[in-house]
């Protein structure tokens, strides 16, 4: 039987020069649910997921994925274990076609099987609504479509844990709606850790919410619990829509 949590961090800390970007974070992520990570700009959200995915080397602390200590694994090995990651600043292969972008994402697992690889690529393009742009060069896409492409590259990997760093930033309303729908369908098969500024997206998708403030984990619980949490209330939710 799989444990309730898929990911745990113990005492995760990151110090940049004199700045404590993350301080002693003990975090546990529920399997097959959507957890939103919120907090003001500079709270340390990107730093946190950077340390989870292996992009950022922690100053201290450890990361466990499915019970395994992955603290010493390089990023690509963690991805191979079943994580996928989308960057806060869109990161795609600009000179390649949309199809090649997705094919590269799907290809790590499927490149040995041409048929399965092509099928997977086509299915993802279709699901995300980029099918008719498959032959377009990625750098020619609109900003919104580039973000969607990056999400497609995450999907194509069939991750166990999908980490998205502010995926809806800069998306149009309609695109945000489509994103919400997509997250809901995905949550059935995978665990999602979503850094999100848009509170509507958080309330419409998240089962759980974790709040980060000045590098510390301030609170975590269900959406309702977080809403009721006085400290969080005072600090963010009541004061700004830009939580």
């Amino acid at each position: 039987m799989a444990a309730v949590s898929i990911l745990e961090t113990k005492g995760l800390t990151k110090i940049y020069g004199g700045l404590q970007a993350n301080t002693d974070i003990n975090f546990s992520l529920r399997r097959n649910a959507i957890t939103a990570l919120i907090g003001p700009n500079g709270a340390g959200k990107s730093t946190f997921v950077g340390m989870v995915s292996g992009r950022t080397k922690p100053t201290n602390g450890s990361v466990f994925f499915e019970g395994q200590d992955i603290s010493r694994l390089p990023a690509h090995k963690r991805i191979q274990l079943g994580m996928a990651y989308t960057f806060q600043i869109t990161s795609i292969f600009p000179g390649l076609t949309v199809e090649d972008n997705v094919a590269l994402a799907a290809g790590r697992k499927l490149a040995h099987d041409k048929t399965a690889h092509a099928q997977k690529t086509a299915a993802v393009l279709d699901k995300i609504g980029l099918g008719d742009r498959a032959d377009q060069v990625a750098s020619d896409l609109s900003y919104g479509h580039q973000r969607v492409l990056e999400i497609a590259m995450g999907l194509a990997q069939d991750p166990k844990l999908f980490i998205l760093d502010e995926p809806t930033q800069g998306l149009a309303e309609g695109e945000v709606d489509a994103f919400v729908t997509l997250m809901r369908t995905m949550a059935k098969e995978t665990t999602i850790l979503l850094i999100e500024h848009n509170m509507r997206v958080v309330t419409e998708t998240a089962d759980h919410v974790a709040v980060l403030d000045q590098g510390r984990l301030l609170a975590s619980g269900t959406v309702d619990e977080i809403h009721a949490n006085a400290a969080v209330q005072a600090a963010y939710l009541g004061t700004t829509a830009n939580a």
Binding site: A75, H76, F87, I92, M153
Partner: peptide, 9 residues
């Protein structure tokens, strides 16, 4: 995009 390639595993 080397970083993207790495983060695709």
């Amino acid at each position: 995009n080397e970083e993207r390639a790495r983060m695709l595993g």
